[in-house]
Design a binder for these strands. Structure first.
Lengths: 149, 149
DNA sequence: TATTGTTATACTCTATAACTATA
DNA sequence: TATAGTTATAGAGTATAACAATA
């Protein structure tokens, strides 16, 4: 299975899809420990991380961004707020809207989780040759581009 | 975000983790349509695909492979059997065990889903330069290696 | 009348605990 | 007594429908 044919373009699509999906799955499994330890669900962590980067989003924007329905996002936000990780505040001009921001404690947690997630992969990367790391360095932005709309 | 620092080794881990996770997520979203259309859940499709490649596995082996508990796998298998996609048969020597095989209809469905999943990525790959595709061709087996234990 | 967000409720998937059959 | 699988039951997460407040 490791040597999936990637010579043809169709073969490349198949091989790349499998290897990317498999590594992503492994990354998820590796962070499962942190997930359990933090007591937050997968979506909760993702939302917290999004908010930490792009500040002051509304629940509606977040729901669309994360491809979940608004009521589901309400529950996620409520859970995060009860843990003191995010804060709801009224919108300045439109009082129907809610503005969300990450608390200092939320920021601390996000950065802690982020570092831990990178740690596993960084360790595995050290087991590669210099040449292989160069290849991945070149591939990363291309993978990023592929995922964009 | 696209130009995540990948120059340092720590930066590479972070950039690679993000790009791989994001593309995998995109691949999941893109196949969500097929998933809904087939009426099968994510795990059901995965199990069917595993069985189609490595024939005659037992429920217990599958549960371990997919990192779910045995009762969960029982439900997955039952659902697939009711759809006529897999078949349960008694083990030849140990009558406690169950042997699973994919039916012809199951094989047809797996191959159909597989082709459709590759189609989206193949289309995106055609939008890259020849040079970029070469880089990904070189990267795929390295990503595969990273995900191995 | 349209929108933003929430509450009420139901469904899907997975887990733990208890049980049956076989080794 | 241990193992393979199943049944019974509960919990987590998300969805749809109905509702409240504001534009």
């Amino acid at each position: 299975m490791t040597s999936t044919q990637t010579r043809t373009d169709a073969g490349l699509a198949n091989g790349l899809r499998i290897s990317v999906s498999r590594l992503a799955r492994r990354l998820r499994v590796e962070r499962a420990g942190d997930l359990a330890e933090s007591g937050l669900s997968d979506t909760q962590i993702t939302v917290l991380a999004v908010l930490e980067r792009k500040i002051a989003m509304s629940p509606g924007e977040l729901a669309e961004h994360e491809k979940v329905q608004p009521p589901s996002m309400t529950r996620v936000i409520t859970a995060l707020e009860e843990r003191g990780l995010v804060q709801r505040a009224p919108h300045l001009t439109d009082r129907r809207q809610v503005v969300l921001t990450v608390t200092d404690e939320g920021k601390r947690l996000v950065n802690q989780l982020r570092r831990r997630r990178d740690a596993w992969l960084a360790m595995r990367l050290r087991g590669l040759t210099q040449q292989e790391r160069e290849t991945l360095r070149a591939a990363a932005p291309i993978l990023e581009k592929l995922s964009q709309a």
